[in-house]
Amino acid sequence: MLMHFQFKPLFENKNIPGWNFSFYHKKQRVTGVYHQTGKIEWTTNVPEREEIEALSSQIHELMLFHVYE
């Protein structure tokens, strides 16, 4: 489960798509980059391989809700 999910534009020009995101998972802060294509680049505390698919799905849902309303 994602706790304290946050995101912000990757670029100062907010018309350029791309977002930095962060959240807590298993008491560790996880960060990454969410690209316009939906690709996720994990930058710190990469989740375990078997968790990546479920977490990616949750991130996609949150980004669709918050960014592409």
Rank of each mutant, 00 (worst) to 15 (best):
N20P: 03
E12I: 09
I59N: 06
W19K: 13
M63E: 07
M1Q: 04
E69N: 14
S57W: 10
T31A: 08
A54C: 10
F7K: 01
N45S: 02
K14V: 05
G32I: 03
G38K: 03
G38M: 08
E41P: 00
E53I: 06
E53G: 04
G38C: 04
Q58G: 07
K27Q: 13
T37H: 05
K27D: 15
R49D: 02
N45M: 02
E12N: 03
S56V: 10
K8D: 09
H35K: 05
S56N: 15
F65E: 08
Q6K: 00
M63I: 06
V33H: 10
F21Q: 06
Y68S: 15
H4C: 02
R29Q: 14
N45P: 01
F65R: 07
W42F: 10
K39A: 02
L2D: 03
E51P: 03
I16A: 06
Y68D: 15
L55V: 09
E48S: 06
Q36D: 14
P9Q: 02
S56Q: 14
F5W: 12
H4R: 01
P9Y: 03
W42G: 02
S57T: 13
L10F: 09
L64I: 02
G32H: 05
H60K: 11
R29I: 14
E61K: 06
M63F: 07
I52Y: 07
Q36M: 10
I40L: 06
F7I: 01
P17K: 10
E61T: 07
T43S: 04
K27A: 14
V33I: 15
F7D: 01
I16G: 05
Q36T: 05
V46Q: 03
F5D: 10
E50W: 02
K14A: 04
V30N: 12
F5A: 13
Q36C: 07
W19L: 12
G18I: 12
G38T: 09
P9F: 02
R29H: 11
T43E: 08
K26A: 15
T44K: 13
Q36I: 06
M1K: 07
T31G: 10
K14T: 08
E69V: 12
L64V: 06
R49W: 00
P47K: 03
E61S: 04
A54G: 11
T44P: 00
T37I: 04
S22N: 15
F11S: 04
P47N: 03
M1N: 09
K14H: 03
F65T: 11
Q28R: 13
L10C: 08
L2M: 10
N45A: 02
K8I: 10
E48D: 00
F23A: 15
T43R: 09
H60Y: 07
Q36P: 08
L55W: 05
P17C: 06
L55A: 09
P9H: 02
R49V: 06
H66V: 08
M63P: 01
L64Y: 08
Y68C: 14
E12A: 12
V46E: 07
F5C: 12
P17G: 09
P47H: 03
F21Y: 11
S56G: 14
E61G: 04
F7P: 01
G18Y: 01
W19M: 12
K39T: 01
Y68V: 13
Y34H: 06
H4L: 00
S56W: 12
F11A: 09
Q6Y: 03
W42L: 09
L10H: 09
E51L: 08
L55K: 01
V46I: 05
P17L: 11
K27F: 14
Y24Q: 15
